[in-house]
Structures are given as structure tokens and as C-alpha cells.
Nucleic acid binder design. Structure first.
Lengths: 136, 136
DNA sequence: TCTCAAGATAATAATCATTACGATTTAAAA
DNA sequence: TTTTAAATCGTAATGATTATTATCTTGAGA
């Protein structure tokens, strides 16, 4: 997803367009990797020296809520990346060195439904961790 | 895995048999669900009122290290359960209500290797979340 | 059985990510 | 421009986890 689309979606949902949100989206754009709240803080230093974590977390969660970002838990920290919802449902290989991701088209859920009759499936997580070719 | 097997493995690895470790294993035994450190603390209150988190975390990690426990991250907290290594490699459905788990024999990794040539795969996570038949 | 050193535990404090909240500022609608 | 709800800032609190150090326990050998 690009910044323009994201800003438009924000407007549709009734959220205000703030410098912080624009900057946050710029940080995410073009990066196919998950980043954590503290990295946003670091990037913000030059622009909003007095930004608070409250602003960062509130916006990260809000942006996730409206499907502009997607999130996962890596090493005990929540990480975020721009949603790649245009590509349809998919999963990621995540490099444990540089954090870059690669899409995996395959979703294992179709293979397990028959084993889970009577279970109410709400969500699932399929992630592969390792070293990407550049870090390997 | 049962308590006896676990205690034997502990001994083989050169770890001492302590009341706390026995109690910890008893807590885990017979429960096919993931539990967090604080729940161990709660269970310990009656036996070791002055137990510290240090003891709990050190042992949880040590027991995981020697493959007596297996761990996962749920909602920002590390959770542990007795290893079911006798059943071979598998994944879990995890009830978001009661925490109980159900084994899923299927592993999606065989389906994705061809898409990850040049990548060094270290690990993977496949978990399904929802409500089990009892909680549904 | 008794001794003792390595290993464990307890008590406490520190760290780190995350969340909360009153005061102040700002975006954008009227 | 004025208004006002929303957003941000500054700061503090919370909760999980890790670190430190002093004290105690286990288990192997005398």
C-alpha cells in the first residue's frame, strides 16, 4: 500500500491528517519489513523531538485497526509493516537479521479445516524465520 | 511427556532435583494447555510462599532448553507447556478462551521450500487461534 | 551419616515495552 | 476566523522479564 492510499483511507474513516501520521506512513512506505515502536521513535527524533510513545502506539494501533498496517509479535515486541492487502491473503518469511520479509502465497489453513470440526477458528499465524539471501 | 521422564532427563543433563522443579512439572503434567509464568507463581503460593520470579523464569527457560517444555508467545507473554515430542513434529490449535490446545498433525513447511530457494530457514510458527468446542 | 562445593533459591532492584492521563495544541468544519 | 473535538505532549505508572548478590539446598564423596 502506498502513502496516498493510506491517507485517503484515513480521511474516509474520519481521522485527521497530522504531520506525525504522514511521517509515520513515509517511514513505512517502501520498506517490506516489520519495524517496532522504538524505531518509529528514533526516526521521529529529527522531526518531532518531543514526541511521546503515546502518540506512536496510539497511531500504530489505529492504523492497524483500519488495515493500513499489519502487525505481528517478534521477540516479545509488536512489529508493524504496511499492509500488503492488494496481494490477497498471504504469509511471510521474515529475516531474523535485517527484518526484511518475503511473501509466501501458500496458506496452510485449507489443509487443516477438516481436522478442526467443532472448533471456531478466529485467526491463524504462519511465519517462517531465517536468513534472507543477502544476510545468509 | 510425563513427570518421571522429565525428571530423568533433568538428571541426565546434570540438573539437580529440587522441590520447586518437581512442583513445576506436576503443574504442567496432564494439562494440554499453555500457561504463563504468573500462573506458575500463583500455583506456587501454597507451597513456596516466598518464591521469586527469578526461580520461575530460570527454570522455565532451562526446562525449555532441555526440551521438557515447549514455549510460544501469546498476547505479549511467553507461555509454556509440556513438550509433546513423542508425537513428532506438529502444531497446535490454541483456544483463546480456556487456553487448551489440540494437536495439528499437518506441517505447512513441505509446501513452501520450493518458494524459498536461497533462504536459510531457521524456524517457523504455525498456530491457529479460536474457540474449542467446549468454549464455543 | 556427615561435609562441602556447586548449584539453586530468595530478596531486591533494574530494565524494557507498553499503557495511561491531565494539560496543551492542532486540524478542519462551520 | 472561530469553534471544538481530536490529537499530541510530558510524564508517570504498569507489568513482564532480567540482573545482582547474599543465603540456602542438593547430592556426591569421605
Amino acid at each position: 500500500m502506498n502513502v496516498e492510499t493510506a491517507l485517503q483511507r484515513l480521511k474516509e474513516k474520519g481521522y485527521k491528517r497530522t504531520k506525525q501520521r504522514e511521517r509515520m506512513l513515509k517511514i513505512f512506505s517502501g520498506q517490506d519489513q516489520y519495524i517496532a515502536a522504538k524505531e518509529i521513535l528514533k526516526e521521529f527524533q529529527g522531526y518531532f523531538p518531543s514526541v511521546s510513545y503515546d502518540t506512536i502506539y496510539r497511531n500504530l494501533y489505529m492504523l492497524t485497526e483500519v488495515d493500513i498496517l499489519e502487525s505481528t509479535e517478534l521477540g516479545g515486541e509488536k512489529h508493524f509493516r504496511l499492509s500488503c492487502d492488494t496481494d490477497g491473503h498471504h504469509h511471510h518469511f521474515i529475516c531474523t537479521d535485517c527484518g526484511k520479509t518475503k511473501s509466501i502465497a501458500f496458506c496452510p489453513m485449507e489443509n487443516v479445516h477438516e481436522n478442526l470440526k467443532g472448533y471456531d477458528i478466529e485467526n491463524h499465524k504462519f511465519e517462517i524465520y531465517g536468513k534472507c539471501p543477502q544476510c545468509h
